[in-house]
Design a protein around this nucleic acid. Structure first.
Length: 528
RNA sequence: GGCCCCAUCGUCUAGCCAGGUCAGGACACCAGCCUUUCAAGCUGGCGACACGGGUUCGAAUCCCGUUGGGGCUACCA
């Protein structure tokens, strides 16, 4: 294969044609991209849908962005980006008890972090309350909705009675809606009442983007409340009014709304508005095959962020959960997903959230991303381990260290934790981990000789360092590994890590000699 | 209970719509290679059409049923 080059998509402003020197065989997004680049230059995207679209993501502000919601947002993003059009962010805050500004902020930040872009909003559903009420009033006037004076208790009783008799409860089969005149009289008398939508007596069928035709028999549909007795609109009225208001062309949302859709269709029609095309995404399941919940691990994007996942990786993983690009390519930048996205390739079956695969994808991005793109994401985790605000030479050294360690870490947090060792004044040694070295009586002296040789080196670089160590090993009559392993322990306090000579080189002369000397002393004192 | 949706390796999936390739890939797992360690990488292995009926020369693919999972069934969203 020809010389390795970064795909422009991964590093739009990076002109570096060379792979990172410490990471000569970058993998993941890079490799994957090259493969397609070479093998299928044709984008596979083919869809019956035509843009421009007006789509929306309408989460309720529960205080965090759920990964299920994030995935819904991602598919809307992909749809909007691939077809052109407008993505509207709307906050479903009709339940004002549970909503506040901070929670709305949280949602926006979550979306921004993961890389979902919206064109309009955030709109607040609560801002449309008057409009929603007006719609309800119009429906009453047209006879498509009526006032309902039954109390929740009465309705409850009627439902229970129906259940006892083994029949399905349907409002109009039990209660007679009041005549307009009677309704007026009772309202004037101050009797509290809700507004109930009169569901048309007809089967409702939709052609769902991910499920095809879905039909709901008329008998299974019932009249439902659109305005509560306190005058507030219910969710069903609000969504439909707002989808009409924003002229949504496609409503892509969770499967939990599929059963609500006939209600919405009824409202769209009654309100004289065009019915948008629906697409109902399957739910994300936890490892227990139940709807994803905290019991089986993290559920919000901020939790994943705090764990040290890259937003690109989470976006990629979530997109793959229920959508397939059609060939074997899996790890790919957002632009590539946009180019390949079609609703036809959306899967109708619920998927278990595969955390292992997410971790793997994250690893692919960690080792494959241009270094300058990776580093900013690492910043908050560096602060956690006390490496925040490094400047000048230290900062440059940090970049090299991160590059050295990136293929070994699965998360940013882990990478930061690995990196600390390279900035320590003194390394702590675990006698247990060092047991093997403690039995070698000659070792302390050998390490001191090694330190002396390293110290005398003109240039403190990989080649020279390796030459010196191997030369010493031969002189002393041991295999190179006998010196290599204790040296790694001396410098990093760990048995595992990058190629030793890389470690020594980035550690630098001064720190290397100090650690070697300290370790020799440790071995002597612990060995006796 | 009623209505709706879903069903391919342990997991994510391709294949299904326009029946006919050893049912393909990825994660995980196992083994080998590479190697100064650990990763990464590379190579190989393990591993699935839920079940039962049809239709057909032929069914993962089309139809029906069963089972199993999920959703909805509120003056929640």
């Amino acid at each position: 294969m020809a010389a390795v080059t970064w795909p422009p998509i991964l590093s739009p402003q990076s002109s570096a044609p060379e792979p990172s020197p410490r990471n000569p065989n970058p993998t993941g997004p890079l490799r994957a991209f090259q493969e397609t680049d070479a093998m299928s230059p044709e984008p596979t995207g083919k869809t019956a849908l035509e843009g421009p679209v007006r789509v929306r993501f309408a989460p309720s502000p529960t205080g965090f962005l759920h990964v299920g919601g994030a995935r819904t947002a991602i598919y809307n993003d992909l749809l909007r980006q691939s077809l052109g059009g407008t993505f509207v962010l709307r906050i479903e805050d009709t339940d004002r008890e549970r909503s506040n500004q901070a929670m709305i902020e949280q949602i926006c930040q979550g979306l921004e972090w993961i890389g979902v872009e919206w064109d309009e909003g955030p709109l607040l559903q609560s801002d449309g309350v008057e409009r929603h009420r007006e719609a309800a009033r119009r429906l009453v006037e047209a006879g498509q909705a009526y006032y309902c004076f039954r109390t929740p208790e009465e309705l409850d009783e009627a439902r229970q009675a129906a259940e006892k008799r083994g029949v399905i409860f349907r409002y109009r089969e039990v209660f007679e809606p009041p005549s307009p005149a009677e309704a007026e009289r009772r309202r004037a008398a101050g009797e509290p009442c809700a507004v109930r939508f009169r569901m048309p007596e007809e089967d409702i069928r939709i052609v769902d983007l991910v499920r095809g035709e879905v039909a709901f028999p008329a008998e299974s549909l019932d009249d439902f409340i659109i305005l509560r007795s306190d005058g507030s609109p219910t969710y069903h009225l609000s969504v439909v009014c707002d989808d009409i208001e924003m002229a949504a062309t496609h409503v892509v949302r969770g499967e939990d709304h599929l059963s609500n859709t006939p209600k919405h269709v009824g409202l769209f029609r009654a309100l004289g508005a065009p019915v948008p095309t629906f697409g109902h995404l399957p739910l994300i399941l936890g490892s227990d095959r139940k709807r994803l919940s905290k019991r089986t691990g993290a559920t919000s994007v901020e939790e994943f962020r705090d764990q040290g996942l890259l937003p690109q990786a989470l976006y990629n993983a979530l997109a793959l959960l229920g959508w397939s690009p059609g060939d074997d390519l899996e790890v790919m930048p957002r632009e590539e997903m946009i180019a390949r996205f079609t609703v036809e390739r959306l899967n109708a079956a619920a998927a278990v959230f595969d955390r292992d695969k997410l971790a793997w994808i994250n690893g692919q991005y960690m080792s494959g991303l241009p270094l300058e793109e990776l580093l900013p994401h690492l910043e908050p985790f560096l602060e956690e381990v006390g490496l925040g605000g490094l400047e000048g030479a230290s900062r440059e050294r940090l970049a090299v260290v991160a590059d050295l360690l990136r293929t070994r870490a699965h998360t940013l947090r882990e990478l930061a934790a690995f990196a600390v060792a390279y900035f320590k004044e003194r390394v702590a040694y675990d006698p247990e981990e060092c047991a093997k070295f403690l039995g070698q009586d000659d070792l302390p002296a050998q390490l001191e000789r090694l330190a002396a040789r390293f110290g005398a080196l003109e240039a403190f670089e990989v080649e020279g360092l390796e030459r010196e160590l191997r030369a010493l090993a031969e002189e002393v009559g041991v295999k190179a590994g006998v010196l290599i392993h204790p040296t790694r322990m001396a410098l990093t306090g760990s048995k595992a890590g990058p190629s030793l000579f890389d470690v020594v080189a980035v550690m630098g002369r001064e720190a290397t000699l100090r650690h070697l000397t300290n370790f020799a002393a440790f071995l002597r004192s612990a060995g006796t």
